[in-house]
């Protein structure tokens, strides 16, 4: 019976996140528009975009292979699997034991490598330079992410996200200096991996500075819709991983429907504020020169490493 309830929570979490991800993107666009003194297209615009894209005809480049058509599904599927693993609104879900933080990072790498390969599959200049930029930056961001996650794992004496969230709900990790570093490193990685402003401009139309957009340039129709949705899911996922590590309050531990709903509401509240912070960052900072981006990622790695070091040096 408990396992059935667990699966119900699991499905609830997946559906909730998949449905709410475009909302997050819409809210982000709205806040950015407000901050930049523009009129926003409304918080529901991403839904309309997805709807429109799904109904459009889908073109594929003449010379592309099955990888190109398969990748959007892999990327979306991998994100769903990741959503199933991370404690977003409930802790200790049935699928959570399938993967710990290391496997979670591996899962995100699966999605990324498929995207990069699909970009190279088009055989265009933009596809391949988007690919090598993405690989380079993620080669520097992935260690930073893992270093941040290791710091939390060392405190919790476990790499399982369930255990980390469980312990940090009791012990308030965030006061610990090593977690401060880890949080900074995680913030860097969030900006890098989600193609946010100091690293990449999600709304750019200037080919030479694109990273993420260059890779999806040849996609259209339902493939593009899946990719856009997957990117929104990724942002949602990173923010909620951040919550799980640094602000774990409110994630439901007991399996009851009311607690789930409350937890879902709390996640939305946290996201509300996180998005405002993100929009502020994106408004206040300028996009970095491409060659400064690796420096940005390396700085994130550095913070992760200092977090690991200070865990030992300042005692736990």
């Amino acid at each position: 019976m408990t396992s059935l309830i667990g699966w119900r929570d699991q499905c609830f979490q997946i559906l909730f996140v998949v449905a709410a991800a475009p909302l997050l993107a819409g809210w982000l666009q709205t806040v950015r528009a407000l901050l930049q003194n523009r009129r926003s297209a409304g918080i529901l615009q991403p839904y309309r975009d997805l709807f429109r894209l799904f109904h459009k005809e889908t073109l594929i480049p003449e010379q592309s292979s099955w990888l190109f058509q398969f990748s959007p599904y892999v990327m979306f599927g991998a994100k769903i699997m990741a959503v199933a693993i991370v404690p977003i609104i409930a802790n200790g879900l049935p699928l959570a034991s399938a993967a710990d933080v290391i496997a979670l990072v591996g899962l995100l790498a699966v999605a990324r490598i498929f995207q990069v390969l699909a970009a190279m599959d088009t055989g265009t200049a933009f596809g391949s330079y988007g690919a090598h930029r993405e690989m380079l930056i993620s080669a520097l961001a992935e260690p930073a992410l893992l270093a941040a996650l290791f710091t939390a794992s060392l405190l919790a004496r476990s790499t399982s996200l369930v255990q980390i969230v469980h312990l940090s709900q009791i012990q308030l990790f965030s006061i610990h200096p090593s977690m401060v570093f880890a949080a900074i490193a995680f913030g860097f990685v969030l900006l890098v991996e989600n193609a946010r402003i100091p690293v990449d401009n999600p709304a750019t139309h200037l080919e030479l500075t694109m990273i993420h957009e260059a890779m999806v340039l040849e996609y259209s129709g339902r493939h593009l819709a899946l990719l856009e949705w997957a990117a929104q899911l990724k942002l949602f996922l990173y923010m909620t991983i951040g919550f799980a590590l640094f602000l774990p309050w409110g994630i439901a531990a007991k399996p009851s429907l009311t607690s789930l709903v409350i937890a879902a509401g709390l996640v939305l509240v946290k996201l509300f504020f996180a998005v405002v912070v993100l929009a502020l960052i994106e408004t206040l900072l300028a996009k970095k020169r491409l060659f400064r981006v690796p420096e940005f990622a390396i700085t994130g790695f550095l913070f992760g490493v200092i977090g690991l070091l200070s865990h030992f040096m300042l005692g736990s």
Binding site: H176, F181, I184, L302, I306
Partner: peptide, 20 residues
């Protein structure tokens, strides 16, 4: 002392920021 530790950590962050 936890606050002091965070300040120490912050000091290190600033030193790295100076470097970068």
């Amino acid at each position: 002392s936890p606050v002091l530790r965070i300040l120490a950590a912050w000091m290190l962050v600033l030193s790295f920021a100076l470097l970068a």
